[in-house]
Amino acid sequence: MSRRTGPGGFLISRRRQGNTTPYGAHDELEAPLQAFVRRECKRRDLLHYHTHRSERSERGFPDSVIVGPRGVMFRELKSNIGRPDPHQLRWILRLRAAGADAAIWTPKDRRSGQILNDLNWLARAPGRTRTLPADLAKTLYLFSRADEEPAAGAHWDAGSAHVDHDRWHLHAQTTIRMVLAALPHTPDQVGQWLREHHLTSPEASRVFAALRDDLARSATGLS
């Protein structure tokens, strides 16, 4: 049977006499995946809603609605051989267009850790303040993965197991100490630095701009 692609690039199922036509093997089914999602939501104190009997419900509405400190997720669950039908696809695309976090999960996402990454992110309370060490640690990690891992930022934010956060926080602390050591400290050193940059009674914005220029030139010289 040929496959059809719907809006958004999703593969969609063909329907015959109102039933979705299966694509082949039945080794990885939707029911165990739904049980897994429900169990992991409970472990993280996430609210999880699933309509068990959908005969009288709106057609295509996502299988799981999950609520946590960071917001709401809508997830359609499919086996590895399943595809969203046009009604399900319409809901996913409309939710996304409205700014909602809507997607499709399959057993492959369970094996890759994507489902747990998404749930971990949703369960974590958003940080109230940003700190320079934390921002720098993430920036260093993203620089190291810029070419090979486009989703590096998502993995960092989700707390993925394969991301060594402690290592990058240590790198950030070391970098901050190195920059601090290179900055002028004494009044004479500060005065000399200001004169070299032609800054007399400068505004803070001009000082930071000059400092950024110095750091940028240094980084260019090291590249």
Rank of each mutant, 00 (worst) to 15 (best):
L89W: 00
L11E: 11
R177I: 02
A210Q: 02
D166H: 12
G60W: 01
I66Y: 01
I66W: 01
P7H: 00
R94L: 11
F143H: 08
V207W: 04
G113M: 08
R3M: 10
Y49A: 14
G153E: 09
S64F: 10
R128T: 12
D63F: 06
L95V: 07
A154P: 03
T129S: 14
W193I: 09
G153W: 02
Q88M: 01
R4T: 11
F36S: 09
V67W: 03
F74Q: 13
N120D: 15
R206T: 14
Q17V: 07
Y141I: 05
E196R: 14
L95W: 03
A102H: 02
F208Q: 09
T220Q: 14
A161S: 15
R39H: 10
R59V: 07
P86T: 00
H198T: 13
T139K: 12
L46K: 05
D135C: 15
Q173E: 08
A146K: 09
P86W: 00
H155I: 03
R16D: 04
H185T: 14
R59K: 06
R39Q: 13
I12C: 10
N19T: 10
L119T: 03
I66K: 04
T175S: 08
T106M: 05
Y141N: 05
H48Y: 05
H185K: 15
V65F: 04
H169E: 10
F61N: 02
R15N: 07
W168L: 00
L29R: 13
R75I: 11
F143T: 02
P84A: 13
R39T: 15
S57H: 09
S13Y: 00
R130A: 12
R94D: 15
L77C: 09
A97R: 15
L122Y: 00
S112I: 09
L89H: 01
N120E: 11
R90M: 05
V179L: 15
R4Q: 12
P187L: 11
P86A: 05
R145M: 02
T220P: 07
G6S: 10
L119R: 00
T106D: 04
P32V: 07
S205A: 14
D27I: 11
L46M: 07
F36L: 15
A31H: 12
H52I: 11
S54A: 15
L47V: 11
V67Y: 02
S160G: 05
G71L: 13
L93Y: 01
P62Q: 06
R110T: 01
I104H: 00
V72G: 12
E149M: 04
